[in-house]
Structures are given as C-alpha cells and as structure tokens.
C-alpha cells in the first residue's frame, strides 16, 4: 500500500509543482514505484515541468468520470521506469472533480504504487482540500517571505481539520520544505532565517532548497530538478530520503562556506 503525500502551500508560485516533480523523481530513483498526481484542474503544469506535455491523452477527470481507466491515463516517465504521471485536465471544469471520484482513484493508486505524490493547486478552495483529503503525509512548501509563511500557517490548520486522517482523529505527518532559501540574504538579516520560519510554523523541517538558477533551468527543459546534479537537486534528494524514513542530517545551504565562499558569496549558494 502506498503512502500518499500532498505537496501544498496555500500561496501560489512557491514551488509546489517543482517540488512534486523533484520529490517524485527522487523517490523513483530509489527504485520505488511512484505516481505524481496533478490536482490543479484547469491550470495543470506538472506535465510541463516533467516534460510530458505532449504525451497527455487522458487525465484525472476522465478517470474520475469513468471515461478512461487509470492505466490508460497514467504516463510512464521516459527516464525513470518506476515514475508515472497522472495529469490534471486542462479544459474541463474543476467541478467535475468529485469527492467520491477522487476517493476511488486514490484507492486504486494506493494499491499499485509505493508512493502517490499529489500536487495541490494554490488556494484553500475545493481543489486544495481534495488534494490533501487522502494524504498520510503533507509537505508544506514555504518561501522565507511573510505572505508565504502566513498562507502556510493557514494550510497547516486545514490539514489538521479537513483531511480524512484528521477527521478520524489520526495524525497527519506535516513537514516543512523551505524553498528559494538564500543563506547570504538570511545571514545579512534581509530574509527570514530557517529557525524563524520553523519557530513560527512549528512543524518539523524536511529540507531546505537553496535559491538557484538550476531550478528554472530544469523546468525549461522539462526535467525534474533531481535528475541533474546541482545544489537544489541534492537538497531535494535528501528530502526524499527523509520521507522514506532515512535519518539524514539537515544542512543549511551555504553554512559550510569558507572565507573564499564568503568573499565570492552569491555564486557559492
């Protein structure tokens, strides 16, 4: 039976889709069978970030409505045998995503995969609550910036109220993934530090992804960040290993920089 992860944030543009693709690919690189599911009906992008935009035939809503079988809609990744994408619909109305339909699809996914990673839409409306509904684990993606932290706080409240686990009185594992972190600006006092965000949100830290041009470069190419070697790539891979239960110490990016790195600061991050 799969573990279901929701990648969520409340705020848009903080890196949910990038993180879904990166974590999904990193888990699949371990040889585990992974399905990444796009819940952003009408504004799908996981297909594009994964480089599968031209291979979409059927989508989540087709499966929910019984117009296609799950196996027909799943797209196998060309680089990783054990990685599959279930795209969202780009044209259908998001009201077609029913709670019962999603529950059925999630049940079927659970039976066939080791991990199901759900990419939540931004906001706190039905799409976001449906994406988190069946999750065992939540990855709360947050930028070190006031509006993102505030929205993450709101999402954490929803995770404790609107998920199936919460309703059954069970715990949902919540983890903070701090993205676009710039250690130099944080050091200078111009950006919230890791410990500031942790203190405010008080959920355990899954990883710190440094701000890096490698992230944009990967999405330009339609490659999950973790498939090419870079600083954010290894940060995401470590985060995936922590999700899988390995005890990997978390390092703050840039902290091990010596005097040379400090002098030529920005490139070292």
């Amino acid at each position: 039976m799969a573990k279901v992860i929701v990648v969520t944030s409340g705020k848009g543009g903080v890196g949910k889709t990038t993180s879904t693709a990166a974590l999904g690919a990193a888990l699949a690189q371990r040889g585990e069978k992974v399905a990444v599911v796009d819940f952003d009906v009408g504004l799908r992008n996981l297909d594009l970030v994964m480089g599968a935009e031209r291979r979409v035939v059927y989508d989540l809503i087709n499966v929910v409505q019984g117009d296609a079988k799950l196996a027909q809609a799943l797209i196998r990744d060309k680089r990783l045998d054990t990685l599959f994408l279930l795209p969202a619909s780009q044209t259908r109305d998001k009201d077609n995503l029913t709670a019962e339909g999603v529950a059925t699809v999630m049940d079927e996914l659970r039976q066939h995969f080791d991990w199901v990673v759900c990419d939540s839409p931004a906001g706190i409306e039905r799409g976001a609550t449906l994406a988190m509904r069946h999750a065992d684990i939540a990855v709360v993606v947050t930028n070190p910036e006031v509006s993102s932290v505030r929205d993450s706080d709101r999402i954490i409240g929803l995770l404790d109220a609107k998920t199936e686990r919460a309703e059954k009185g069970q715990r949902i594992d919540k983890h903070l993934l701090l993205t676009r972190y710039d250690p130099i600006r944080a050091e200078r006092g111009d950006m919230l530090k890791v410990e500031d965000v942790l203190e405010i949100l008080s959920i355990p830290l899954l990883g710190i992804i440094p701000e890096s041009s490698d992230v944009l470069r990967a999405s330009n190419l339609g490659t999950p960040v973790t498939l090419v070697e870079s600083a954010p790539s290894s940060a995401y891979r470590d985060a995936a290993r922590r999700l899988a239960g390995e005890a990997i110490p978390i390092t703050v990016p840039g902290e091990k920089r010596g005097i040379f790195g400090k002098l030529f600061g920005r490139r070292a991050a």
Binding site: V146, R150, D153, R154, D190, L192
Partner: peptide
Amino acid sequence: RNTAPVARERLQVLLAHERATVG
C-alpha cells in the same frame, strides 16, 4: 536596517491573532 526581524515579529503577532480567530 535588518528587515528580517521585522518580518518575523509582524508574522508572530498576526498569526497569534489569526490562529485565535480561526481556532
């Protein structure tokens, strides 16, 4: 002027209030 401590303090005050309202 360091702006991060200001951000941190504003968030702490705001979220204490918002958590109270929602909760």
